[in-house]
Design a protein around this nucleic acid. Structure first.
Lengths: 130, 130
DNA sequence: TATAGTACTAACATCAATGTAAGTATGAGA
DNA sequence: TCTCATACTTACATTGATGTTAGTACTATA
């Protein structure tokens, strides 16, 4: 739980209230969030296990955390099927889909300017479809 | 100093090497970096004291840290005039200027979608000039 | 009765980012 | 000799983000 008061938190609030850029960065800036968003953009809909298997380095706790935050921020939706074993599907909301040009923009700048590119990135797969 | 090895650091490296989106976010994602970049975009060139006075809530240490990181990442340049009292000017590099459309994109999405907007944001001033 | 599969949760541990307070170097001008 | 202004630096403290490990609930199937 975060503290209710601290300069740190106050500063964050002030910035989010006055800077749209920071607000957007706050929503998509978690370590694994870009990867999650790209996967859902590409696939449309994924089960929890699919996401987990496609990102071998995230721990389950962190993956869940990132998904919960994206859900709270209305960027993704979570659909539970009352079955056993459980089945949960994640997909982008309308708001999440509206991030597509933003993500493309970030991705293109990054791919154009980062050094030591090793592999082609997720975004390139999508870029070709645009 | 960051540790040389840790899952945390390894994950970060892997992501930066494979995801352009995350790379871009890594460069501009510090708490005060968007504000610094917008100011330099708008003003072209600012002294350290000008930056500091225009952002009353940053501590000097943190402001310097963010400036140093932006400088290391080649987004801004730092020009020292050998005078007393000292004079230091910061401005965007070519690479930094190339972020303009990216910042506009982030800012527009944020301004359009965040709730509880109180004041007009820095970016709007610039948007009008585009 | 035991095992398997799915999507988690809880308690704990570590690492990184941010913030606080005080101090430094320099030379011009009072 | 003392103060002022500028652009920092240093040592320390706090906050927040990320990672580890073990465990849970549920039923169908072996």
């Amino acid at each position: 739980m975060r503290k209710e008061t601290s300069t740190n938190l106050e500063n964050e609030k002030l910035i989010l209230a006055s800077c749209g850029t920071s607000y957007t960065l706050d929503l998509i800036g978690g370590r694994w969030k870009p990867q999650i968003l790209w996967r859902l953009l590409l696939q449309g809909c994924m089960r929890y296990s699919q996401l987990k298997n496609s990102m071998p380095n995230v721990s389950e706790r962190i993956l869940i955390l990132q998904l919960r935050e994206l859900e709270q921020d209305m960027l993704i939706s979570r659909q539970v099927y009352p079955e056993v074993p459980p089945k949960v599907e994640y997909r982008l909301t309308e708001l999440g889909l509206s991030l597509k040009p933003v993500l493309c923009c970030l991705s293109q700048w990054g791919d154009a300017n980062r050094p030591n590119r090793v592999v082609s990135s997720d975004s390139e797969v999508l870029s070709e479809e645009l």
